[in-house]
Amino acid sequence: MTVDVTTAVLEAVGAHGPASRRPLAGGTYNTVTRVTFDDGRDWVVKVPPPHATGLSYEQHLLVNEVTFYEAAAGGPIPQVVHSELDPGAPTGAYVVMTTRPGLPWSAVADGLTADETRALRAEFGAAVGRLHGVTGPGGYGYPAEPLGPLAPSWREAFTAMTDAVLADAERYAARLPWPVGRIHEVLAGASDVLDEVTRPALVHFDLWQGNLLVTGEAGARRIGGIVDGERMFWGDPVADLVSTSLFGDPETDVDFLAGYAAATGSPLVFTPSVRRRLVLCRSYLYLIMLTETVPRGVGPDAMEATWNAVAPRLVAALDELGQPFGRGFSGRELRRGAASDG
Score class of each variant (00 low, 15 high):
R332I: 08
P179L: 10
A220I: 08
V294Q: 01
L290M: 02
D206Y: 02
A258N: 11
G54N: 11
H204N: 06
L62S: 13
V44D: 07
E217I: 11
A73H: 06
R100G: 03
S245T: 15
T67C: 09
S273V: 12
E116F: 03
E320N: 05
W154F: 05
G139Y: 01
Y284N: 01
D110K: 10
R332H: 09
P18I: 12
G141T: 06
R175Q: 13
S340H: 12
E11L: 14
A261C: 08
G14V: 14
R175E: 09
G139S: 05
H82W: 13
P237Y: 01
E145M: 05
D249I: 13
G141S: 04
L194I: 10
S245Y: 12
V3L: 15
L334R: 11
G27I: 12
V193P: 01
T53V: 15
G26A: 05
M289G: 07
D240T: 05
L194E: 02
E70N: 07
A311S: 05
L112I: 08
Q323E: 15
S83P: 11
R277K: 14
S243N: 15
R335P: 03
P87H: 11
R182N: 06
V13S: 10
Y69F: 07
V186M: 01
A126M: 08
E333P: 03
A71T: 10
A339C: 10
L147Y: 00
W307Y: 04
V310L: 02
T159D: 06
V315S: 03
D253N: 14
R277L: 09
G337H: 00
N30Y: 14
D195E: 09
Y142Q: 08
P49Q: 14
G216S: 01
A188C: 08
A114C: 09
T113R: 09
E84R: 07
L120C: 04
D341Q: 15
E304C: 12
R130W: 08
T113N: 07
D249W: 05
A122M: 11
T117S: 14
D249T: 12
D86T: 12
M303H: 14
M232F: 07
P137I: 10
Q59D: 15
Y57C: 10
L318D: 00
S20M: 11
N308W: 11
Y284W: 10
L112A: 03
R336T: 12
V96N: 04
G138L: 05
I223E: 00
V63W: 01
A218K: 13
E70P: 02
A190E: 04
E251I: 13
R336Y: 12
I226S: 01
P177I: 02
L202M: 02
L10G: 04
D319P: 10
Y286D: 00
R327C: 15
C281S: 13
A114L: 11
L103I: 14
H51V: 14
Y29D: 14
T67G: 10
T244M: 08
G259S: 06
G210H: 09
G133V: 03
D301C: 11
V203F: 05
V3G: 11
Y94T: 10
S340C: 08
R231F: 02
G331C: 13
L166F: 02
A302D: 14
A263Q: 05
F270C: 10
T36R: 15
A201N: 06
T215E: 08
W105K: 06
Y142H: 08
